[in-house]
Amino acid sequence: MTTSTPTRSALIEPDRRLPALGGFAPGALLIELRRVLRNRRTLAFTLIMPGVFFLIFGLPQSGQSLDNGRPVTAYVMISLAVYAAMVATTSVGGAVATERALGWSRQLRLTPLRPAAYVATKLITAMSLGLLAVVIEFLVGAVAGVRVPAYVWLLSGLAAWVGSLVFAAFGLFIGYLAPAENVMQIIGPVLAVLAMFGGLFVPVEVLPDVLQQVAKFTPVYGMGVLARAPLTGDGVSLAAVANLVVWALLFGVGAARLFRRDTARV
């Protein structure tokens, strides 16, 4: 074999420069997005189920109004949009667990892709799916007759979407914590409980007093309050903002630490 023909490098010297942005590439991101949108379970839990919830739990309250005269259906719709977005972003972040369990992250270490570029791809994918989840929930609401001023659509949608970044970080945190192929089956119920404490299924005010106090410290509470504020006209309490910031920091720092542990070479 060694005595054969001219060497490969004598014929063509491949481009050996490092890739830009640590290997982050829109082309790979598109394939990743397509992959997420092909996953039936993801679609069912993030794009279909929240819409169905609205039709079941929101629609029967048509005609009822909040204290400020805005429709209750909008309250339900915005809450479920937050829920849809948080499930969407968590599932994409949590997919890291699957990819670690399958050994894909090890395969990636044989390519120029830097771990930070990998996480960036995951975050953008998560936020894309989160945005899609919010938009679909709002579309279902709009078609079903929810009418609120344009700024409410915009600000509430934006708050639901941006808030779900906390759960993208949460998903990554879980993803780097446990290499399990079916991590979402474990997190799914946890998210439902958190959503309940965050007032996404029923207003926090109807919970028993003790639970109301507990709820204020759970990670969905802040983003729920912020997303509904444009609708209810209630001021945004410092506690709600602090809640969002603290949980974003906790999950973000936690994910970053586990990520560093994972990519350290032993």
């Binding site: 491949p14 481009d15 050996r16 420069r17 490092l18 890739p19 830009a20 290997g23 590439a25 082309g27 790979a28 394939i31 990743e32 397509r34 992959r35 092909r38 996953n39 990819e99 369990a101 399958l102 050994g103 894909w104 992250s105 090890r106 395969q107 990636l108 044989l110 390519t111 120029p112 892709l113």
Partner: peptide, 23 residues
């Protein structure tokens, strides 16, 4: 030990990996 993503096609796996390189 290098794993593959089960839900990508063979062609997608190659194209995705190709994006990580300069050339």
């Amino acid at each position: 030990t290098g794993g593959l993503l089960k839900d990508l096609t063979v062609g997608e796996t190659v194209r995705m990996t190709a994006h990580f390189y300069r050339h």
